[in-house]
Lab assay of single mutants.
Amino acid sequence: DDVELRDGDWRVELKDADEEILRAVEEAIKNGASEQELRELAERLIR
């Protein structure tokens, strides 16, 4: 699993992620995405 989400800690570690993925995830976090939404976003972007 390349995506690590810690309970109560919104730092997201994406291994080997490019800047576009990181920006998309950071934007989702700023917009108040839930953990499930972040997982789905990350899975779509990593593929």
Rank of each mutant, 00 (worst) to 15 (best):
G32D: 01
D7R: 02
D16R: 06
I21F: 05
I46Q: 07
L45P: 01
R11V: 06
G8M: 14
A28D: 00
E13I: 15
R11T: 04
D16A: 09
E43T: 08
D16K: 09
G32M: 02
V25K: 00
D9G: 07
R39Q: 13
K15L: 14
R47E: 14
E13W: 08
E20L: 10
D9M: 10
D2F: 11
R47I: 12
K30A: 14
I21K: 01
V3K: 11
L38Y: 05
E19L: 06
Q36F: 07
E37D: 05
D1C: 14
R6M: 14
D1I: 10
E43K: 10
I29W: 13
V12S: 11
A28G: 02
R44P: 00
A17H: 09
G32K: 02
E20T: 11
I21G: 01
D9L: 06
R11K: 08
D9F: 09
A42L: 14
D2I: 14
L5N: 12
V25Y: 06
I46M: 14
W10K: 02
K15R: 11
G8T: 14
I29P: 00
L14K: 01
R44K: 12
E19M: 09
L41W: 02
R23M: 09
E27I: 10
L22H: 09
E4H: 14
E26G: 08
E43N: 08
I21R: 01
G32E: 01
V12Y: 08
R39D: 02
V3E: 12
K30F: 09
Q36D: 11
L22C: 11
I21L: 06
E40W: 03
D1F: 15
V25D: 00
D2T: 11
L14W: 02
V25C: 07
L45Q: 01
E40P: 00
V12C: 04
R39H: 04
E13S: 13
I46A: 04
A24Y: 08
R11M: 13
E26I: 09
S34K: 04
L41N: 00
E13V: 15
E26T: 08
Q36C: 05
L41R: 00
G8V: 09
E13M: 15
E43L: 13
L14I: 07
R6Q: 15
E35M: 09
I46T: 07
L5C: 13
D16L: 11
D2R: 10
E43Q: 11
D7W: 10
D18Q: 09
E19Y: 09
D1M: 10
D2M: 12
I29N: 04
K30N: 08
I46D: 04
E27Q: 09
E40A: 12
S34A: 03
D16P: 03
R6H: 06
E40C: 06
E13Q: 08
D18R: 09
E43P: 00
A24H: 04
R11E: 04
I46Y: 06
K15H: 07
V12W: 13
E37W: 03
D1K: 10
E4W: 12
D16C: 05
E26L: 14
I46V: 07
A42R: 03
K15M: 11
E27V: 07
R44S: 08
D2V: 10
E26W: 14
K30T: 04
V25W: 07
A17M: 15
E27M: 11
L5A: 04
L22F: 07
R44Q: 10
E43H: 11
D16H: 12
N31V: 02
V12G: 08
L22T: 07
D7N: 07
E13P: 08
S34Y: 01
L45Y: 04
E20G: 13
A42Y: 15
E27A: 05
A42N: 01
V25A: 01
E37M: 06
G8D: 09
E13A: 11
A17W: 11
L41V: 01
A42F: 15
A17L: 12
E43W: 07
D9E: 04
V12A: 12
A42G: 01
E4P: 07
A42W: 14
D9S: 09
R44W: 10
L38A: 14
K30Y: 08
R23E: 04
I29V: 12
R47C: 15
I21E: 01
L45C: 05
D7G: 11
L38G: 04
D7P: 06
L41K: 00
A17T: 06
D18L: 09
G8L: 13
L22I: 11
E19G: 09
E37K: 03
K15F: 09
E20M: 10
L22E: 02
I21H: 02
A17P: 04
L22A: 05
R44M: 09
R23S: 07
I29E: 15
D1P: 12
A24K: 14
R39A: 06
E13D: 09
G32W: 01
Q36H: 08
E26D: 05
E35D: 09
W10F: 05
R47Y: 15
D18A: 05
V25P: 00
L14F: 09
E26C: 06
E43G: 05
K15W: 09
S34I: 02
R44D: 09
D2S: 13
E43C: 13
A42K: 06
A17R: 04
E13H: 15
L45E: 02
I46P: 01
N31D: 06
L5K: 07
N31R: 10
I29R: 05
L41T: 00
W10E: 02
R47L: 15
A28S: 02
K30Q: 09
I29K: 10
G32C: 01
E19I: 14
S34C: 02
R39P: 00
G32T: 00
W10I: 05
R44G: 08
R39W: 12
L45M: 04
G8H: 11
L38I: 13
E37S: 04
W10S: 03
A24M: 15
A24E: 11
G32F: 02
A33E: 02
R23Q: 07
V3H: 11
L38E: 00
L45R: 01
R11G: 05
E4V: 04
N31H: 08
E19F: 08
A28N: 00
E20S: 12
D2W: 12
E20H: 09
R23G: 02
I46S: 04
V3L: 07
R23T: 03
S34R: 01
L38C: 14
D16I: 10
L22Y: 04
Q36N: 08
E27F: 08
N31Q: 11
L14A: 02
L45D: 01
G8N: 13
A28Y: 03
A17D: 04
R6D: 14
E37Y: 05
R6I: 10
D1R: 09
S34N: 06
L41A: 00
W10Q: 03
V25E: 00
E27K: 06
K15A: 10
V12M: 10
D1N: 11
